[in-house]
């Protein structure tokens, strides 16, 4: 076969590969949104994080504004430490913003919901959210319900 045709077809083949990688990066995976750079990190201590996982969404008013970047346990305070990365365009959360762990739907994944406070100072990189509300643990709830009768 003509060398030129072969080379052209291989060129299209490579092009198609780049299109596929673009789809995989931008549409299928989360490279486009919240990809390491841009944004600031805040932390929050929770009594119980329930089934919260890394990369879980962080929402304010139901709109995704960031994601959970890490979950660990602090043996000094005996609380779970959740680090949250908020996208840089949402940089005007007051310092008395509260964080709660919610479940989307009955069996859905858990996410962190932020409710803005009223102060004039804004959260910056490395700040800590003091007002937190733990995850609703279904087993505990059912246990309370059974023993209260």
């Amino acid at each position: 076969m003509n060398v030129r045709i072969v080379e052209t077809l291989v060129g299209f083949f490579v092009l198609l590969f780049f299109v596929a990688m673009f789809i995989l990066a931008m549409k299928v995976s989360n490279l486009a949104s919240f990809s390491g750079t841009g944004g600031y990190t805040v932390s929050a201590y929770f009594e119980n994080v329930g089934g919260l996982k890394r990369r879980a969404p962080v929402a304010a008013g139901g709109v995704r504004v960031g994601q959970v970047t890490g979950i660990s346990y602090n043996t000094d305070t005996y609380k779970a430490l959740v680090t949250i990365k908020i996208n840089e365009q949402f940089d005007k959360f007051p310092t008395d913003t509260s964080a709660s762990i919610f479940t989307s739907g009955l069996l859905g994944e858990q996410y962190v919901g932020l409710s803005p406070g009223g102060l004039d100072d804004y959260l910056a990189d490395g700040d800590e959210i003091d007002l937190t509300q733990s995850a609703l643990v279904l087993e505990k709830l059912i246990g309370n319900f059974l023993t209260s009768k």
């Binding site: 990066a25 299928v28 995976s29 989360n30 990369r55 969404p57 994944e109």
Partner: peptide, 15 residues
């Protein structure tokens, strides 16, 4: 469909 997919699939860890 797309947003749940993007939430669960990581570019470095999965792709």
């Amino acid at each position: 469909f797309w947003s749940r997919m993007q939430g669960a699939v990581g570019f470095y860890t999965d792709v």
